[in-house]
Simulated assay, not measured.
Amino acid sequence: MTIQALKQQALEVRKTLLSMIYQAKTGHTGGALSSTDLITALYFEVMHIDPSNPKWEGRDYFILSKGHSVEGYLSALAKRGFFDESLLSTFCQYKSPLIGHPNNKIPGIEMNTGALGHGLSISVGMAIGLKKDKKPNRVFTLMGDGELAEGSVWEAAMAASHYKLDNLIAIVDRNHLQISGSTEDVMGLEPLRERWESFGWQVEEIDGNSMLEVVNALKAAPFKEHKPSLIIANTTKGKGVKEMEDIPSWHHGVPNQHLYEQAMLDFESMEKELQNV
């Protein structure tokens, strides 16, 4: 897809995930919106996947380590054809398989996630297994920046470097906010790039809400032979809805009717702008 088409697709994902949250009256809005461009680029341009055969042996693997931001992930999977899009309207409803975190009973989801700090460890194990089997498949994992306070992340980071996992590409959704406030107030992460480099990773830093930068970085990975790759994707929490952007309370906020309707009008305006470019 062209960058323009990917931007339009990301907008559709944002519209859908916000509708899911509004209808369900629950969800993690801010982080789902900040990571939409990353997930859209992965599923519509970068990853080797077959929606008609989710368990295809040649597929790339994706683990959403920040499992609470599942709404954009589910939206992208449905729009990519892994399951019927009508199922999205049941999100977090009684007996729905679409719960508030990834559920591997859903086609396209490799692993249940949600307990923060586990995704990178799981991805390291997958990448080691692929290396041992001499397979070319890649493993992508998306982490939240607040998640990096978990010690298991850094154990996995050491292991990835030790085993020279250049088939592993990790992404940090660096929106600088978590449920209790600024990441730097809760548990300082900076200098983040230097920390990952000291653990033996090859690091690139990008604007995670610029589709061009996202696609270029993902397609350039692995960045160096025999080294795991990390993308620090600087994003805006709540990206796309002005009233939500950079506000910590939207980590787990749900829009009221007025805000939801206004956001949908704003999305329509954005769509027209994209069509006129």
Rank of each mutant, 00 (worst) to 15 (best):
Q202W: 10
H226F: 01
L212K: 15
M211G: 01
A220E: 07
M211K: 05
S198M: 15
V215F: 02
G208Q: 06
E225S: 12
E213V: 05
S229C: 03
E204C: 00
T235N: 02
V203M: 04
N209E: 14
N234M: 11
N209W: 10
M211L: 10
V215P: 02
E205W: 04
A220W: 06
F199G: 02
P228I: 03
P222V: 01
P222N: 07
V203D: 09
S198A: 15
T235M: 01
D207V: 07
A221W: 07
E213H: 08
A233W: 08
L230T: 07
W201P: 02
G208M: 01
K224R: 15
T235H: 12
I231F: 08
F223R: 01
F223C: 03
F223I: 02
V215A: 00
D207M: 02
I206N: 12
A233R: 11
N216W: 00
E204W: 05
K227T: 10
E205M: 12
A217W: 02
F199I: 10
E204I: 03
W201N: 02
L218A: 07
T235P: 01
G200Y: 10
L212V: 13
A217Y: 08
H226S: 13
A220C: 07
F223V: 00
L212N: 15
V215S: 00
L218K: 00
K219T: 11
L212G: 07
P222H: 10
T235K: 01
V203Y: 11
L230I: 09
D207E: 12
I231W: 10
P222F: 10
W201Y: 01
Q202A: 08
L218W: 04
A217E: 01
E205G: 02
D207S: 11
E204D: 05
G200L: 10
I206E: 11
E213K: 14
K227V: 10
P222M: 00
E204P: 09
V203E: 09
H226M: 04
A221G: 09
E205D: 07
A233D: 13
K227E: 09
G208I: 06
D207H: 06
I206C: 11
F223E: 02
K219F: 01
M211P: 09
S210Q: 14
F199L: 09
S229I: 12
A221L: 13
L212Q: 15
P228Y: 09
I231K: 06
M211T: 14
L212P: 04
A233C: 14
S210K: 14
E225Y: 08
A221V: 12
S229F: 02
A233T: 06
N209Y: 03
K227D: 01
A217L: 08
Q202H: 11
W201T: 05
A233V: 14
